[in-house]
Structure formats: C-alpha cells, structure tokens
Design a protein around this nucleic acid. Sequence first.
DNA 1: TCATTAAATACATACTAATGGTATGTATAG
DNA 2: CTATACATACCATTAGTATGTATTTAATGA
Lengths: 220, 220
Amino acid sequence: MGRNKYPEETVAKILDAALELFCVQGYEGTSIQDIVDRLDGMTKGAVYHHFKSKEEIFNAAFDRAMAPIVERRRATLGAGNMTGAQKLKRLYAPESVVPQIELWARMHPAADPVKSSRLLAMQYQGSFDESADGCLLPVIEEGIADGSIACKCPREAAEAVSLLANLWLLPLFRPLETKDRMLARAQCLAQMAAAVGLDLGNEVLQTTAQIWDVWNRAGW
Amino acid sequence: MGRNKYPEETVAKILDAALELFCVQGYEGTSIQDIVDRLDGMTKGAVYHHFKSKEEIFNAAFDRAMAPIVERRRATLGAGNMTGAQKLKRLYAPESVVPQIELWARMHPAADPVKSSRLLAMQYQGSFDESADGCLLPVIEEGIADGSIACKCPREAAEAVSLLANLWLLPLFRPLETKDRMLARAQCLAQMAAAVGLDLGNEVLQTTAQIWDVWNRAGW
DNA sequence: TCATTAAATACATACTAATGGTATGTATAG
DNA sequence: CTATACATACCATTAGTATGTATTTAATGA
C-alpha cells in the first residue's frame, strides 16, 4: 500500500479496529498484530507511524469514542435557562445517557471485570475527574447558588453518585441483571442521592429501563 | 540450590515477593523474572514448578493476603449474641477494618488506578461477591429477620455500600485526600446508607480517621 | 501557470529485546 | 527406587525500533 493522501482515514481505521478489539478482548488480550490484521494490507509500520505506543492507541481510541458524549453533556450544561436542579435531572434522563450506552453496547466489552480491568480503571478514574468534578459537581454548585439544590457536601455527593452510576448502574463490567433488579438499583441510588440533597428525578427509572433494553438487545 | 525439605517455605517466599511486586508495579508491570530476582538463587523453574501460570501466582498471593481478614470477618459474623444491626456496625468499626488497611498499606499499591487496574478489578468484583453477598447481605438479612434493621432493598443497599466503602472510602487506588475530606466522605456514606435503612454507626468516622493515619504514616 | 526539485510524510520490511511458558535434565528426600 | 524440588535450556509471541522506499506537498524558478 502506497502512501495515503488522507492519513486521517488511516488513523480512523486504526482506532476503529483498536477500540472494538480492546473492548472485546481487553487491553492485554489485544496485540498490535491483532489490530494490524484487521487493517487489510496495512502493516505494523503504519500503526507505529501514527501512534508511538499501544498505550497511546488505547487512549486515543477511548477518547475518540467518548468525544461526542462529552460534547453532548457540555451542551446540556451550557443551557442558561435552567436551574441547577433541572440540569441535574437532565443529566440522568434517557436523552443524556442512552447514546452513551448504545456506544458501549456496540463495543461489547467483556463482562469479566478482570479482562476489562483497564476500561474499568478508566471508568473509575473518570468517575472522579470527568463525571464528578467536570460535570456533576458544577451542576450541583450551580443549584446551590441558585437555591434549587440543598446539599451540604457537594463534592462528596458528586463522587458517590458518579461512582455508583458508572460502576453499578451501568452493566458494563458485570453480567446483565434482570430488569427488575436494575430498576431496584436505580431506585436505591435515587433514594441515597436524595439523602444528601440530590434529586435525580423520576426519569432515572426510565433511563435504567432503556439501558436494560439496549443491553439486552445487544445480546447479553 | 538443591531440593528443599520444606517446599511450603519456597511457596511462601514466592508469594511474598510476588504480592509486593504486584502491588507496587501492577500485574502487567511485574515480570516473572522480577519475582525470580527477589528469590536469591532460585530460578524460574522453581516458580513454574509450584505455580502453573502468572495468573495463578497472582491469585494465590492475593488470596493468601486476604485470608486472615476474611477469617476475622467470619468470626464477627459468627457471634450469636448480637443483632444484625449490631453486627453491621461492627463490620465498619476500626477493629474490623484497620487490620486490612495495614496490610494494604504495607504493600504500597500504586495510586494510579490504571497501573493497579487488576487489583481494582478484583476489589470491584469482591464488592459484589465477598463483601456484599458473602458478608454484608447476610448481616442485613439477619437484621431484617430479628427486627433490628428496616431495609426494603437489602441486596441493592449491600452492593452500593460495599462498592462505596471499597472503592471510595479506602484510598487504595487514588492519591490520599486530606483527613477532612475523607471524613466528609464517611459522613456522606453514612447518610446515604441511613437513607436505605442501614445504620453504619458513628464508629465509621473513627475508622476513617484511623485509615487516614495508617495510610499517611505509610508515607503517602 | 507550470515544470523541477527538495523535503516531509506515509507507509513497508526487517529486526531486537523481553516476556510468559515449556521441555527436559538432575539431585535429593522419602 | 520413585516422586518431588528444583535448574537449565529453549520457544513463540509481543511491544517496539531502525531503516528503507514511494508518494505527496512545498519551494523554487521561469
């Protein structure tokens, strides 16, 4: 294969192949050669021309998959005509969550947390960084400022809710539960959040139901 | 080195070296050769005589470290003259938690969750299996049976509390926070638990303070 | 505007060091 | 004598590198 006039296409192909393999086989379970084999005709030299390490491929693939979702949330946060409390509910409404879930479902991450340990670690870290500090916490603080939320420990509440939402409600790294049990989890989380002043809204139940549907349809 | 009369000693040496390396360098960051190099004179043949894979070494080392702690908890659970509510409080009292923390602190796991992703994954899975299903849930159910606990969603409450306790309160895979913020987390968790009918007791705060001291003394 | 050339880029090929694991040999305990 | 506890020597795979080659782009000059 000669030189491509549009190298971004090559990069995109590499990241597409990589993300799917990393999700299905895990990070350590995926070799560079596995990725190369999915890029017909291309060789390892091409991959290492565009990325300097496997680590970098992983991060780039992950960031790329996350970008539209982060953008979407940013849009929700940006709207100026809503109170903090309203934005909070919106964050856990189906329209905010389901697109993310559909992405994950397409990737079919391994239900075994040990096989998916790297993804799990990133979700874990993300629960503090992006989800909590960069997304949930500002909304809560906005709500406190405008009087629509009464929360005495905003940072802690944000972290706890993010963690539970990302690693407990989302069935990414665990075998799929029954719909009823997922709904019970959602209700439990809502109750716990309410205890620290956060009203996640009734839509959480609908969101959870839709998550289950998407996941179940994806064949778990 | 000739044949050892007491091969259990060899096994113990291997597991000791392995656990420390796995904690500090992570699973993938630790090679069999790294382990061998700490067993002066011994060779890879010895290691692979006693264990059939790196995976098995890891699991054995982990189980070995966890055994006394699991045993201790089992003892707490076994006592027949306490209500479920009392046992619940005991589970989060310093005497139950601190020994575990001291073990972890000795191991100095990497604060980077990605480097420690395998340990994180095991803690994650353990939060469902051992902590929740095997330890917390039976206590809650006992409390419900004897009337000392009123909880409408015992399974969900157990999972949520376990997850938060293992992955949020314990500073295993994150840089150590200030003592105040750790205490705020503990209080937040207690509040959330109370909302679903679980009284973790006031001792949670003392437990958290002691955890911080241990961790801080260990040089974080 | 267009041909010519130089440089940078997009790959392919061939290789290396390290790794998990195996096959096999040998000495010692029971 | 036999089974076990090791040591030695080896293998296939892997992430990563060094280098070679073709093509695109940029610069130049008329």
